[in-house]
Simulated scan of single mutants.
Amino acid sequence: MSVTIKDVAKFANVAPSTVSRVIANNPRISDKTKEKVRAAMKELGYHPNFIARSLANQSTQVLGLVTPGSSDVFFQNPFFPTVLRGLSVGAHEKQYALQMVTGQNDEDIYNGVIQMVQGGRVDGVVLLYSKVEDRILTYLRERNFPFVMIGKPYSFVNEITHVDNNNFQASKDAANFLLSLGHTRLAFIGGDVDLVVTVERLKGYKKALEEADIPIRQNYILHQSFLLEGGRTAVCELMELPLHERPTALLVADDLMALGVLNTLNSLGISVPEDLSVLSFNNVLFSEMARPPLSSVDINIYELGYHASKHLIKRIENHDEPFKRVIIEHKIVTRQSTGQA
Protein backbone atom coordinates (compact mmCIF):
# COMPACT_ATOMS: atom_id res chain seq x y z
CA MET A 1 0.00 0.00 0.00
CA SER A 2 1.41 3.37 -1.04
CA VAL A 3 2.27 6.10 1.46
CA THR A 4 -0.06 9.14 1.40
CA ILE A 5 0.21 12.76 2.47
CA LYS A 6 -1.92 11.88 5.51
CA ASP A 7 0.63 9.25 6.56
CA VAL A 8 3.43 11.80 6.31
CA ALA A 9 1.39 14.38 8.25
CA LYS A 10 0.70 11.90 11.05
CA PHE A 11 4.33 10.82 11.24
CA ALA A 12 5.56 14.46 11.34
CA ASN A 13 2.73 15.55 13.65
CA VAL A 14 1.53 18.30 11.30
CA ALA A 15 -1.60 18.92 9.25
CA PRO A 16 -1.87 17.37 5.74
CA SER A 17 -2.13 20.92 4.34
CA THR A 18 1.29 21.67 5.87
CA VAL A 19 2.79 18.68 4.05
CA SER A 20 1.30 19.98 0.78
CA ARG A 21 2.80 23.40 1.40
CA VAL A 22 6.21 21.88 2.14
CA ILE A 23 6.05 19.92 -1.12
CA ALA A 24 5.24 23.20 -2.90
CA ASN A 25 8.14 24.86 -1.03
CA ASN A 26 5.80 27.54 0.31
CA PRO A 27 7.92 30.37 1.78
CA ARG A 28 5.44 30.79 4.66
CA ILE A 29 6.45 27.43 6.12
CA SER A 30 9.45 27.65 8.47
CA ASP A 31 12.71 25.91 7.61
CA LYS A 32 12.40 23.85 10.80
CA THR A 33 8.98 22.52 9.76
CA LYS A 34 10.19 21.86 6.23
CA GLU A 35 13.10 19.84 7.57
CA LYS A 36 10.80 17.82 9.81
CA VAL A 37 8.31 17.06 7.03
CA ARG A 38 11.03 16.19 4.51
CA ALA A 39 12.64 13.88 7.05
CA ALA A 40 9.26 12.15 7.49
CA MET A 41 8.86 11.82 3.71
CA LYS A 42 12.30 10.25 3.46
CA GLU A 43 11.70 7.90 6.39
CA LEU A 44 8.38 6.69 4.97
CA GLY A 45 9.59 6.60 1.36
CA TYR A 46 6.96 9.10 0.20
CA HIS A 47 7.38 10.62 -3.28
CA PRO A 48 5.03 13.44 -4.39
CA ASN A 49 2.98 12.90 -7.53
CA PHE A 50 4.34 15.84 -9.52
CA ILE A 51 2.25 15.06 -12.58
CA ALA A 52 -1.00 15.42 -10.62
CA ARG A 53 0.38 18.47 -8.89
CA SER A 54 1.36 20.04 -12.21
CA LEU A 55 -2.12 19.54 -13.61
CA ALA A 56 -3.64 21.15 -10.53
CA ASN A 57 -1.23 24.09 -10.51
CA GLN A 58 -0.91 24.46 -14.30
CA SER A 59 2.82 24.14 -13.74
CA THR A 60 5.31 21.59 -15.03
CA GLN A 61 8.05 22.12 -12.41
CA VAL A 62 10.46 21.76 -15.33
CA LEU A 63 13.14 24.16 -16.62
CA GLY A 64 14.11 24.02 -20.29
CA LEU A 65 17.81 24.22 -21.21
CA VAL A 66 18.83 25.49 -24.65
CA THR A 67 22.30 24.60 -25.93
CA PRO A 68 24.37 26.64 -28.39
CA GLY A 69 24.39 25.30 -31.93
CA SER A 70 25.50 21.75 -32.66
CA SER A 71 25.21 19.19 -29.88
CA ASP A 72 28.82 18.20 -30.68
CA VAL A 73 30.10 21.24 -28.79
CA PHE A 74 27.78 20.61 -25.85
CA PHE A 75 28.71 16.97 -25.33
CA GLN A 76 32.46 17.37 -25.97
CA ASN A 77 33.25 20.56 -24.07
CA PRO A 78 33.55 20.07 -20.28
CA PHE A 79 32.21 23.58 -19.66
CA PHE A 80 28.67 22.30 -20.19
CA PRO A 81 28.60 19.30 -17.80
CA THR A 82 29.92 21.63 -15.08
CA VAL A 83 27.34 24.35 -15.72
CA LEU A 84 24.68 21.61 -15.92
CA ARG A 85 25.67 20.40 -12.45
CA GLY A 86 25.11 23.90 -11.04
CA LEU A 87 21.78 24.21 -12.83
CA SER A 88 20.69 20.83 -11.51
CA VAL A 89 21.50 21.64 -7.89
CA GLY A 90 19.71 25.00 -8.04
CA ALA A 91 16.66 23.42 -9.65
CA HIS A 92 16.59 20.48 -7.23
CA GLU A 93 16.50 22.83 -4.24
CA LYS A 94 13.14 24.09 -5.51
CA GLN A 95 12.01 20.64 -6.72
CA TYR A 96 12.29 21.48 -10.42
CA ALA A 97 13.47 19.07 -13.09
CA LEU A 98 15.47 19.89 -16.22
CA GLN A 99 14.69 19.24 -19.88
CA MET A 100 17.28 19.87 -22.58
CA VAL A 101 16.88 20.96 -26.19
CA THR A 102 19.73 19.89 -28.47
CA GLY A 103 20.10 19.52 -32.20
CA GLN A 104 22.56 19.23 -35.06
CA ASN A 105 21.97 22.81 -36.16
CA ASP A 106 20.31 26.10 -35.15
CA GLU A 107 17.09 25.22 -36.98
CA ASP A 108 16.68 21.97 -35.00
CA ILE A 109 17.17 23.82 -31.72
CA TYR A 110 14.81 26.67 -32.64
CA ASN A 111 12.04 24.21 -33.54
CA GLY A 112 12.73 22.28 -30.34
CA VAL A 113 12.27 25.43 -28.26
CA ILE A 114 8.96 26.22 -29.97
CA GLN A 115 7.69 22.69 -29.28
CA MET A 116 8.85 22.89 -25.67
CA VAL A 117 7.28 26.29 -24.98
CA GLN A 118 4.05 26.01 -26.96
CA GLY A 119 3.58 22.43 -25.86
CA GLY A 120 3.55 23.60 -22.23
CA ARG A 121 6.41 21.27 -21.32
CA VAL A 122 8.41 23.78 -19.27
CA ASP A 123 7.78 26.74 -16.97
CA GLY A 124 10.86 28.67 -18.06
CA VAL A 125 14.01 28.48 -20.16
CA VAL A 126 17.75 28.88 -19.55
CA LEU A 127 19.80 29.92 -22.57
CA LEU A 128 23.26 28.41 -22.01
CA TYR A 129 24.87 31.00 -24.28
CA SER A 130 24.52 34.53 -25.61
CA LYS A 131 24.64 35.28 -29.34
CA VAL A 132 24.91 38.54 -31.24
CA GLU A 133 21.85 37.54 -33.28
CA ASP A 134 19.44 35.02 -31.74
CA ARG A 135 15.88 34.41 -32.91
CA ILE A 136 15.24 32.11 -29.91
CA LEU A 137 15.78 35.08 -27.60
CA THR A 138 13.50 37.20 -29.79
CA TYR A 139 10.83 34.47 -29.72
CA LEU A 140 10.94 34.18 -25.91
CA ARG A 141 10.77 37.96 -25.43
CA GLU A 142 7.82 38.31 -27.82
CA ARG A 143 5.90 35.64 -25.90
CA ASN A 144 6.91 37.18 -22.56
CA PHE A 145 8.02 33.70 -21.51
CA PRO A 146 10.23 33.44 -18.40
CA PHE A 147 13.88 32.91 -19.28
CA VAL A 148 17.39 33.73 -18.12
CA MET A 149 20.66 33.74 -19.98
CA ILE A 150 24.14 32.54 -19.08
CA GLY A 151 26.22 35.28 -20.65
CA LYS A 152 25.76 38.97 -21.35
CA PRO A 153 22.95 39.82 -23.81
CA TYR A 154 24.15 41.64 -26.91
CA SER A 155 21.02 43.82 -26.80
CA PHE A 156 18.35 44.60 -24.17
CA VAL A 157 20.90 44.18 -21.37
CA ASN A 158 18.64 45.83 -18.82
CA GLU A 159 15.58 43.84 -19.91
CA ILE A 160 16.97 40.32 -19.57
CA THR A 161 18.02 38.57 -16.38
CA HIS A 162 21.46 37.12 -17.02
CA VAL A 163 24.25 35.44 -15.08
CA ASP A 164 27.71 36.16 -16.40
CA ASN A 165 31.35 36.88 -15.72
CA ASN A 166 32.80 40.24 -16.60
CA ASN A 167 34.41 38.69 -19.66
CA PHE A 168 35.88 41.97 -20.86
CA GLN A 169 37.72 42.45 -17.57
CA ALA A 170 38.67 38.79 -17.27
CA SER A 171 40.29 38.84 -20.71
CA LYS A 172 42.00 42.15 -20.03
CA ASP A 173 43.37 40.77 -16.74
CA ALA A 174 44.60 37.63 -18.51
CA ALA A 175 46.30 39.64 -21.27
CA ASN A 176 47.90 41.95 -18.71
CA PHE A 177 49.21 38.92 -16.82
CA LEU A 178 50.99 37.70 -19.96
CA LEU A 179 52.23 41.21 -20.68
CA SER A 180 53.65 41.37 -17.13
CA LEU A 181 55.74 38.29 -18.01
CA GLY A 182 57.30 40.27 -20.86
CA HIS A 183 55.22 38.88 -23.74
CA THR A 184 54.65 41.65 -26.27
CA ARG A 185 53.90 39.26 -29.14
CA LEU A 186 50.61 38.06 -27.74
CA ALA A 187 48.03 36.25 -29.90
CA PHE A 188 44.33 35.62 -29.24
CA ILE A 189 42.49 32.41 -30.15
CA GLY A 190 38.77 32.96 -29.71
CA GLY A 191 35.58 31.05 -30.37
CA ASP A 192 32.66 31.72 -32.69
CA VAL A 193 32.44 35.44 -33.49
CA ASP A 194 28.63 35.21 -33.14
CA LEU A 195 28.99 34.47 -29.42
CA VAL A 196 29.01 37.50 -27.10
CA VAL A 197 31.61 35.86 -24.84
CA THR A 198 34.03 35.89 -27.80
CA VAL A 199 33.22 39.54 -28.55
CA GLU A 200 33.78 40.59 -24.93
CA ARG A 201 37.02 38.65 -24.49
CA LEU A 202 38.43 40.01 -27.74
CA LYS A 203 37.63 43.54 -26.55
CA GLY A 204 39.47 42.91 -23.28
CA TYR A 205 42.51 41.54 -25.10
CA LYS A 206 42.62 44.54 -27.43
CA LYS A 207 42.19 47.02 -24.58
CA ALA A 208 45.15 45.54 -22.67
CA LEU A 209 47.38 45.84 -25.75
CA GLU A 210 46.15 49.35 -26.45
CA GLU A 211 46.93 50.51 -22.90
CA ALA A 212 50.39 48.93 -23.19
CA ASP A 213 51.00 50.78 -26.52
CA ILE A 214 51.39 47.48 -28.35
CA PRO A 215 50.06 47.44 -31.93
CA ILE A 216 47.18 45.02 -32.58
CA ARG A 217 48.13 42.54 -35.30
CA GLN A 218 45.17 41.05 -37.15
CA ASN A 219 47.13 37.91 -38.02
CA TYR A 220 47.44 37.28 -34.26
CA ILE A 221 43.64 37.06 -33.88
CA LEU A 222 41.95 33.79 -34.88
CA HIS A 223 38.51 32.30 -34.30
CA GLN A 224 37.59 28.63 -34.23
CA SER A 225 35.05 26.30 -32.58
CA PHE A 226 35.31 25.57 -28.84
CA LEU A 227 36.74 22.10 -29.54
CA LEU A 228 40.12 20.35 -29.63
CA GLU A 229 40.20 20.67 -33.40
CA GLY A 230 39.58 24.41 -33.16
CA GLY A 231 42.72 24.83 -31.06
CA ARG A 232 44.76 22.63 -33.40
CA THR A 233 43.71 24.55 -36.50
CA ALA A 234 44.37 27.97 -34.97
CA VAL A 235 47.83 27.22 -33.59
CA CYS A 236 48.93 25.55 -36.85
CA GLU A 237 48.07 28.78 -38.65
CA LEU A 238 50.09 30.84 -36.17
CA MET A 239 53.08 28.49 -36.42
CA GLU A 240 53.15 29.02 -40.19
CA LEU A 241 54.36 32.59 -39.55
CA PRO A 242 58.12 33.22 -39.92
CA LEU A 243 59.98 32.31 -36.72
CA HIS A 244 60.79 35.92 -35.83
CA GLU A 245 57.11 36.91 -36.24
CA ARG A 246 55.53 34.12 -34.22
CA PRO A 247 53.83 35.04 -30.94
CA THR A 248 55.56 34.17 -27.68
CA ALA A 249 52.25 33.80 -25.80
CA LEU A 250 48.69 32.72 -26.59
CA LEU A 251 45.50 33.79 -24.89
CA VAL A 252 42.99 31.01 -25.68
CA ALA A 253 39.28 31.53 -25.00
CA ASP A 254 38.55 27.96 -23.86
CA ASP A 255 40.40 25.13 -22.10
CA LEU A 256 39.36 22.43 -24.59
CA MET A 257 40.75 24.54 -27.42
CA ALA A 258 43.90 25.09 -25.34
CA LEU A 259 44.34 21.34 -24.92
CA GLY A 260 44.29 21.06 -28.73
CA VAL A 261 46.92 23.83 -28.79
CA LEU A 262 49.18 22.02 -26.29
CA ASN A 263 48.90 18.69 -28.13
CA THR A 264 49.75 20.32 -31.45
CA LEU A 265 52.70 22.28 -30.07
CA ASN A 266 54.08 19.08 -28.54
CA SER A 267 53.82 17.29 -31.90
CA LEU A 268 55.66 20.21 -33.55
CA GLY A 269 58.48 20.05 -31.00
CA ILE A 270 57.63 23.46 -29.53
CA SER A 271 58.11 23.62 -25.75
CA VAL A 272 55.56 25.20 -23.41
CA PRO A 273 56.30 27.57 -21.71
CA GLU A 274 59.96 27.79 -22.81
CA ASP A 275 59.10 28.63 -26.44
CA LEU A 276 55.48 29.68 -26.07
CA SER A 277 53.27 30.47 -23.07
CA VAL A 278 49.59 29.46 -23.07
CA LEU A 279 46.86 30.93 -20.86
CA SER A 280 43.26 29.80 -21.23
CA PHE A 281 39.76 30.22 -19.77
CA ASN A 282 37.35 28.10 -17.68
CA ASN A 283 39.73 26.12 -15.43
CA VAL A 284 37.95 22.80 -16.01
CA LEU A 285 39.13 19.60 -14.31
CA PHE A 286 41.60 18.52 -16.98
CA SER A 287 43.43 21.88 -16.88
CA GLU A 288 45.69 20.72 -14.07
CA MET A 289 46.11 17.29 -15.69
CA ALA A 290 47.29 18.70 -19.05
CA ARG A 291 50.95 18.45 -20.01
CA PRO A 292 52.14 20.89 -18.93
CA PRO A 293 49.40 21.83 -16.41
CA LEU A 294 47.42 24.68 -17.96
CA SER A 295 47.24 28.19 -16.55
CA SER A 296 43.59 29.20 -16.80
CA VAL A 297 41.10 31.87 -15.80
CA ASP A 298 38.68 30.29 -13.33
CA ILE A 299 35.22 31.65 -14.15
CA ASN A 300 33.35 29.54 -11.53
CA ILE A 301 31.28 27.61 -14.06
CA TYR A 302 29.26 25.78 -11.42
CA GLU A 303 28.14 29.10 -9.91
CA LEU A 304 27.00 30.35 -13.32
CA GLY A 305 24.61 27.39 -13.59
CA TYR A 306 23.48 27.45 -9.99
CA HIS A 307 22.51 31.13 -10.02
CA ALA A 308 20.88 30.85 -13.45
CA SER A 309 18.40 28.23 -12.23
CA LYS A 310 17.76 30.10 -8.96
CA HIS A 311 16.97 33.36 -10.75
CA LEU A 312 14.83 31.68 -13.38
CA ILE A 313 12.68 30.05 -10.69
CA LYS A 314 12.27 33.47 -9.07
CA ARG A 315 10.97 34.84 -12.39
CA ILE A 316 8.64 31.88 -12.81
CA GLU A 317 7.18 32.28 -9.34
CA ASN A 318 6.94 36.07 -9.63
CA HIS A 319 6.53 37.55 -13.11
CA ASP A 320 7.11 41.01 -11.61
CA GLU A 321 10.59 40.03 -10.41
CA PRO A 322 13.00 42.80 -11.52
CA PHE A 323 15.50 41.98 -14.26
CA LYS A 324 18.97 41.41 -12.83
CA ARG A 325 22.57 41.12 -13.94
CA VAL A 326 24.43 38.66 -11.72
CA ILE A 327 28.22 38.80 -12.08
CA ILE A 328 30.28 35.79 -11.00
CA GLU A 329 33.86 36.53 -9.96
CA HIS A 330 36.89 35.26 -11.86
CA LYS A 331 40.52 34.63 -10.94
CA ILE A 332 43.68 33.58 -12.79
CA VAL A 333 45.03 30.18 -11.73
CA THR A 334 48.70 29.96 -12.71
CA ARG A 335 50.28 26.62 -13.54
CA GLN A 336 53.24 25.49 -15.66
CA SER A 337 52.01 26.59 -19.12
CA THR A 338 53.01 30.23 -18.58
CA GLY A 339 56.49 31.68 -18.05
CA GLN A 340 58.70 34.66 -18.70
CA ALA A 341 59.23 35.75 -22.30
Rank of each mutant, 00 (worst) to 15 (best):
G103I: 02
Y96T: 11
S130E: 04
G190Q: 02
R143M: 09
H183E: 02
K152F: 01
I189Y: 04
H162C: 09
S171G: 12
R141K: 14
T102E: 00
S130I: 00
K94S: 15
H92M: 14
Y96I: 08
R135D: 11
Q118L: 09
Y154V: 12
Y154F: 07
Q99E: 12
N176D: 13
R121K: 13
Q118N: 15
T138Q: 14
N158A: 12
I160V: 15
R135S: 12
S155M: 12
P153C: 13
V113Q: 09
N176V: 02
K131Q: 06
S171L: 10
I109D: 07
Q115E: 14
V148E: 04
F188I: 03
F168A: 11
N166M: 00
Q118G: 06
P146F: 08
Y110E: 11
E133V: 00
I189G: 01
V132C: 02
D134A: 01
D108T: 00
Q104Y: 06
A97K: 08
V113W: 07
G90C: 09
F188R: 11
R143P: 02
D123W: 13
N165I: 01
G112F: 02
F168N: 12
L140N: 13
V125L: 04
S130A: 15
T102L: 06
F188N: 00
A170D: 07
T138L: 07
E133W: 02
E142V: 11
F147Y: 13
I189P: 01
V157H: 10
L178M: 13
R141T: 11
D164F: 04
M116F: 13
L181K: 07
A175E: 03
E93K: 11
K172Y: 11
Q118S: 10
Y96H: 05
F156E: 11
G112A: 00
Q104E: 15
A187M: 01
F188H: 08
Y96D: 13
M149Q: 14
F168D: 05
R185D: 09
V122S: 10
H92R: 15
D173A: 07
H92N: 15
K94F: 03
R85W: 09
M100K: 02
Q169Y: 09
R141E: 12
L186W: 08
I150G: 04
G86Y: 01
L179I: 06
Q115Y: 05
N158K: 05
G90T: 10
V163T: 08
V125T: 05
D123N: 12
Q99A: 15
E93T: 08
F145A: 06
R135Q: 15
H162G: 03
F177P: 09
T161F: 01
L181E: 09
V122N: 06
M116L: 15
F156S: 13
V163E: 04
E133S: 12
L186N: 06
E142W: 12
G112H: 03
M116P: 12
S88E: 09
R121Y: 12
N111L: 10
H92W: 07
Y110N: 06
A170Q: 03
Q95P: 01
N144T: 11
L137V: 14
T184V: 09
G86E: 07
I136V: 06
A175W: 10
G182Q: 00
K131F: 00
N158L: 02
K172G: 01
R135H: 13
V125N: 05
V148Y: 08
F188V: 05
